[in-house]
Design a protein around this nucleic acid. Sequence first.
DNA 1: CATGAATTTTGATATATATCAAATCGGTGT
DNA 2: ACACCGATTTGATATATATCAAAATTCATG
Lengths: 240, 240
Amino acid sequence: MQRTVSFNQLKIACSNCNLRELCLPVDLSNDEILQLNDLCHQKRRFAHGDYLYRSGDKFQSLFAIRSGSFKTQVLHEDGREQVTGFQMAGEIIGLDAISTDRHTCDAIAHESSEVCELPFNKLETLSRKLPSLQRHLHRIMSREIVRDQGIMLLLGSMRAEQRLAAFLLNLSQRYAARGLSPTRFQLRMSRQEIGSYLGLKLETISRTFSLLQQRGLIHIHIKSIEILDMEGLQTCLAGS
Amino acid sequence: MQRTVSFNQLKIACSNCNLRELCLPVDLSNDEILQLNDLCHQKRRFAHGDYLYRSGDKFQSLFAIRSGSFKTQVLHEDGREQVTGFQMAGEIIGLDAISTDRHTCDAIAHESSEVCELPFNKLETLSRKLPSLQRHLHRIMSREIVRDQGIMLLLGSMRAEQRLAAFLLNLSQRYAARGLSPTRFQLRMSRQEIGSYLGLKLETISRTFSLLQQRGLIHIHIKSIEILDMEGLQTCLAGS
DNA sequence: CATGAATTTTGATATATATCAAATCGGTGT
DNA sequence: ACACCGATTTGATATATATCAAAATTCATG
């Protein structure tokens, strides 16, 4: 029953889902990789604006973003909507739903995107057999906690300028981790959405972009941004 | 090798660590309960102000608070410290460290407290054998994510009054869940700490308490608080 | 290419909270 | 009971961001 796989097959298997978060750091045998790969065979495409899931939907699967990007948001009782995160290819989405069996936010495609579905029961079953997968799943969930606490700190004690610097540096890092330019990229989200995420109004975002540009830290034109002075931005994040 | 346990023993086992979060909802056999119980045999006491762990410490265990309460905080580069959470008896603390192998914040006893240590490797090993424990661990981590995202929403889009109302209602619920009065309890934390947690200054906290009192929603005297109008507070949380 | 809608930028003003300062209160030890 | 020290409350003012409004730019559509 032991299947043998070539290194090439293995690479394909591993990249099958583009599971940067789930796959890469796991030291699994070839066979184990294949098992994991079987998990996430089912793929789905989404166009800009499509919902991956909605708040209240029954939770069954995590989703690994293969390509494209998503945003997550919640609707307040009064109708206002608040963005809780931006997710890029290679990230896992839906972790918040595990505790309640229902999704707690909406996930919406920001552009044409592909995801693969990871049925959570199967993921749990497999992770009982594969300790390194189990550990990895724990790390992913913990990382989400750390990320969220980072945002809490940002919202609790930083001013507009620092928040935006933190946001841009975070995007920059994530692009860099994907082998893309950390200094020149497209913002997939509107000023409105950035503001909602950072706890600021769109006008403040616009003003703060202008400010950073005047200081020569960035060059921005609508959705195209170039970071001109990375260290300057970091200084700005550190604040006064 | 199968040990038999009476219902009474089982209750003792389960309550051994006062693991509201870890134990109660898990449907384990008697023997499994005993295994879990073995995990958390080591107990430690802390006095007010003692550190349970510090930011940067090597991560090895989660901690279950048996009695008392803790706060977690991070130190910014510039020396300011920000409270990231208040933890009560029955809660699990340390989840953020799993992803980095190092603790990412300080945990400090707010009063005389007892914790039991849960070596994470052992917890993982056991949870590979006990699916319901595995599922439960996942739920606990997910719940932490949901909690943090709740704070994000609060910090991002609520005013002082709403934040404080949310804070008080949250405490109230947690006391209620422990069979204590949801309307009359002691605040273990200072105005400073509440402010730090809610992204406000201590003066604002004090003023807002006064405001809520003037409106007849609460009665507060230093650290003793009584909620007089629960619905009023909820309305206040919902905001304008 | 022209038109209109949506997004972004910029300006003027309002407002919530921070900051600075002082007074009051509560607890602790002598 | 008294004096002291930290925590809390309250007041006056400053400031960052929100809000309201209008202009400028970009984008979508026929």
